[in-house]
Computed example of a mutant assay.
Amino acid sequence: MNLFRSVRAVTGASGDGAVDWDAVVEAARASTDPGPLDVSAAEREAYATDVRDARTRIRSIGDLTFDVPDRIEIQNRHHWIDANADTFRRVMQPVESHTTVAIPGVSRVVNTGTMSFMLAFLGRNVLGQYDPLLLADSNDHALYFVRPNIVDVADKLDVEYDRFRRWIAFHEVTHAAEFGAAPWLTDHLEATMDDGIEALSRGTLDREAFEELDTTMTVVEGYAELLMDHAFDGEYADLRAKLDARRQGRGPLARFVRRTLGLGMKRRQYERGKAFFEQVAEQRDVETASVVWDRPENLPTNDEIDDPDAWLRRLNL
């Protein structure tokens, strides 16, 4: 980790855009310890086994037809930064293309520093990621495991690494199940994101688009929690409790950064979405819950997430 090199990369930001993305990656990598990635053949096979077992269990529990991505990577933190820098760039491109500032050089340095800080923070905290590669030119999907973070968190939580790794694998495969069962979901999210970002680039706020995006992500996170509850082949209440306690125990700066990056919103999406699907499964069954992926019109509205009975009535379930 080299903080001087990171600062130098940010202050040396150049180019014509609002963000120097090469400098973003250089600064994020320089300020982040990549972590060890000395993975044995046995451990690589253990990751693959976890993913295969999760796929089999989730297919059975959710009555879903899907497969896991061809790209399954065990990464260090720098690998994750490299993989996600393009996602940041794609999301920000419409805003950049419409942005004009009075002092371009100063603004570029500030923007570059902000993006590199966000990317580095996430790179040090993400455990696993199912990536549908939104706004990419291809329809490729990928599954990432950031091994140094998984090892560190398992150690800090005082839980067995193999068990924690398996739990992370099951959670990420639930997301693969959702996008695999709903081929329309990627396009739906991309269109909603495009509408919201395009409005921001014009200096306006499309509240409807952002509410739709929040609602869809609440469904995505909530359904994943439902599948985890039914599919994981072991007890994990202690894992979740320890993770929640660790989040609550973060310092004020870390809590501020998490709020700024919307990670608090993600937790709310987990909880609200899970409550919706738990009630649906209790009144009907898990298979009924999977109806949300049949077509976009089956997604619950924002109001229906808090009133699952209304959703069941609307779909005659």
Rank of each mutant, 00 (worst) to 15 (best):
R44E: 12
V101L: 08
A48R: 09
E26D: 13
V110H: 08
N84P: 01
V291E: 12
D131S: 02
R8A: 08
V106T: 09
S201Y: 06
R55D: 00
G15Y: 11
S116D: 02
R284I: 13
D82H: 07
F179Q: 04
A310K: 01
R77A: 04
I58L: 08
F170K: 00
P69F: 03
E225A: 11
R166Y: 03
E45R: 15
D82R: 06
E160C: 03
R108H: 02
G222C: 04
A18Q: 12
G222A: 08
G222F: 03
S40G: 09
V10A: 05
T65C: 05
V7E: 09
R89K: 13
L134D: 08
D285E: 06
S31D: 12
L200M: 14
R247I: 13
A176N: 13
R247Y: 15
G180L: 11
F232G: 01
T288L: 11
G234I: 07
R147S: 02
R258V: 13
R71E: 12
G273F: 11
F170W: 10
T204W: 10
T288C: 10
R55T: 10
R246M: 15
E190W: 06
D214M: 11
V126I: 14
R272M: 10
Q75Y: 11
D306M: 07
A83Y: 10
D187H: 12
A102Q: 14
V153F: 04
R77Q: 07
V7K: 13
P132N: 13
R268S: 14
N76Q: 05
D233R: 15
R55F: 02
A23F: 06
M118L: 15
R268V: 14
V25Y: 00
H188G: 00
A199C: 06
D306C: 00
A310Q: 02
R267C: 02
V280D: 03
L133H: 13
L189V: 13
Q129W: 02
P296G: 07
T99I: 09
V109L: 03
S60T: 12
R147I: 00
P252E: 08
A42Q: 14
D285V: 09
R8C: 06
A85T: 13
E172G: 05
E178R: 10
A245E: 15
E190M: 03
P104S: 06
A209K: 05
D86E: 15
E212Y: 00
E190G: 04
R250V: 09
P104L: 01
A177V: 06
K242T: 04
R57K: 10
L312F: 03
L243S: 14
F232C: 08
R255D: 05
V7D: 11
N2P: 00
V91T: 15
F170Y: 13
D86W: 07
A41P: 05
T260F: 14
G180E: 07
N316F: 10
Y270W: 05
R284Y: 05
F170A: 02
